[in-house]
Computed example of a mutant assay.
Amino acid sequence: MTQVHDTRYQRGLAALSAIDGEAGEKVVAQLADIAPDFARYLIEFPFGDIYSRPGLDLRSREIATIAALAALGNAQPQLKVHITAALNVGVTRDEIVEILMQIAVYAGFPAALNALFAAKEVFSSHPPSGAAQ
């Protein structure tokens, strides 16, 4: 059983690093002193089990994730992490804006506005692709 646990954890760490890079590692580190088990679950389940499945590529998974978080309307910190992740896996700024505009139809204007302002904040701290860093 430990080997299965270690495999899930290692697979999760690899996925987290590929998707979120330093931002994901910071979230896990911030949980270490208050809820280390939750930090492990965060690595094993979403990243080790779900993100690592073969059915969708990481780009598609991040599109679905930012749409879901934006639709919630109350998950801006997580939305910002996943907007960054979406940029990391090849989703463009224009695509992110279109996704967030699309959710206005189903989640309402307030949720879309909150999400667009979150995106604007992320975009301001991440140069566009091809820009000098």
Rank of each mutant, 00 (worst) to 15 (best):
A112S: 15
G108M: 04
T7N: 08
I96D: 01
Q30M: 14
L31F: 10
Q78W: 04
A71Y: 12
P54T: 14
M1Q: 07
F47R: 04
K80G: 08
I19P: 12
A64V: 02
I63P: 05
A119S: 00
A104G: 03
A32M: 12
F45H: 11
L58S: 05
Q30W: 08
L16P: 00
A85G: 11
G55N: 04
A112M: 12
A18Y: 02
A132P: 15
S125V: 14
I96L: 13
A86H: 05
D33R: 10
P54H: 12
A75V: 04
L113H: 11
K120I: 04
N74P: 13
V91R: 03
E121Y: 13
A35H: 09
A131Y: 12
A118W: 07
F47C: 02
E62N: 08
K120L: 01
G130N: 09
T2P: 03
G21D: 11
E95K: 09
H126K: 09
A85R: 06
A111M: 02
M1Y: 06
G24S: 01
L13V: 01
M1V: 07
I103W: 09
D33L: 06
P46Y: 05
S125I: 10
E22V: 13
I34K: 01
A64M: 01
A85C: 00
E121D: 14
D49C: 00
A39Q: 00
Q3P: 02
A85W: 01
Q30T: 10
L79M: 13
P77R: 05
G55E: 14
A29I: 03
P127L: 10
T92K: 11
A119P: 03
V81W: 08
R59M: 01
Q78L: 05
A86I: 06
N74M: 06
A70M: 07
V105R: 12
L69V: 03
Q76E: 15
E95M: 08
L16W: 07
A104W: 10
G130R: 04
Q102R: 03
F45I: 09
A67R: 03
Q30V: 11
L13S: 01
L13C: 05
V105P: 10
A85I: 04
A39D: 07
V97Y: 05
V81M: 13
P127S: 13
V105D: 11
A68V: 03
